[in-house]
Computed example of a mutant assay.
Amino acid sequence: MFSENLPFQSNPSTPALKLPAGACDAHCHVFGPAKDFPFAPERTYTPVDAPWETLAALHDRLGIARTVLVQASCHGTDNTAMLDAIARSGGTCRGVGMVAREVTDAELQHLHDGGVRGIRFNFVTHLGKDADVGAVQELAARIAPLGWHAVVHFEADRLETLAPILKTLPVPMVIDHMGRPDASRGVTQPAFGMLLDLMADERFWVKVCGAERITRTGPPYDDAVHFARELVTRFEDRVLWGTDWPHPNIKKDMPDDGALVDLLARIAPEPALLQKLLVRNPTRLYWPEKFQARSNR
């Protein structure tokens, strides 16, 4: 039985915070439309349609210029909807795909040519079966020559087991949603301490999004801000941010994306930190050719 998702907010607020030029939403999704891009039969949830046109209009409203689409489990390893959106973006969009262990080199090259720059592995119970550790290790070795990275999505209590495995992978790794700690337990909790220890390795990056996922108090996510602020302060060159639109598997209090943007004024209040979080860091990871060109000027 598939769980049904709540609809995203169709009329989000316009943020008060003006984002820097070239700001990037480094974690969001496109879903369907199902009539054109059917959902995977093995999915654990059925999202509402969330097509590229709607996301592009949202980004215009929020002041976001660039996008990183992340393949979600509801589409499985069929990355067609994401590739279609990237192709329509005019070069302002990159992607993180999901692939099967049996993916061919030709298929990986096709994804690269289509704008994909990484693959995602899920270790989250409600999204179904964990990624196979052997497959993770094999695929990480295969994507390394492409200059890709791995995005890893896990629940906080899994990190103790996963950390030794992740440290063996030969590619940069991006941790989703601050490692999904329980915000009510504070930044001194052991799970968050393990994430900080992992981040001491410069191959690791972390996304300071998902306040609406780790909160235990709800909007305006006061309990979650401390985690994001800690990560931005400690690891300013290896942090990313995203809206997580259209917020799959949120069970109540569907986020206002304008309010999530305004939360950045508390997460990265210094202009230099905001510039790194939204512009410099995603350029380094997803548009490295542009970052290098700027560095050579």
Rank of each mutant, 00 (worst) to 15 (best):
W287L: 11
K35R: 12
C24Y: 07
P220H: 00
A259T: 02
V136A: 09
P15G: 07
W287R: 06
P190E: 04
G258H: 07
K35C: 00
E107W: 01
T188V: 14
D262H: 07
L83R: 10
D113G: 06
L162M: 05
Q71V: 13
V151N: 07
T46P: 01
L285G: 00
R266M: 10
Q292A: 15
A211N: 10
E107S: 13
V136E: 08
R61H: 08
L159F: 00
K276D: 05
D78A: 06
D257W: 10
P145W: 02
L166V: 13
P15I: 06
A21N: 09
F227S: 02
V70Q: 04
P269K: 11
K18N: 13
V30R: 03
L162Q: 00
L260C: 05
S3H: 05
V225C: 08
A200L: 11
A200H: 03
G114V: 08
A259N: 06
I64S: 07
W205E: 03
P47D: 05
A144F: 12
G91N: 15
D256F: 05
G97I: 03
Y286H: 15
D262V: 01
K167G: 02
R88V: 02
R94G: 09
P20G: 04
V239G: 00
G63I: 04
E289Y: 11
N5Q: 12
R120M: 07
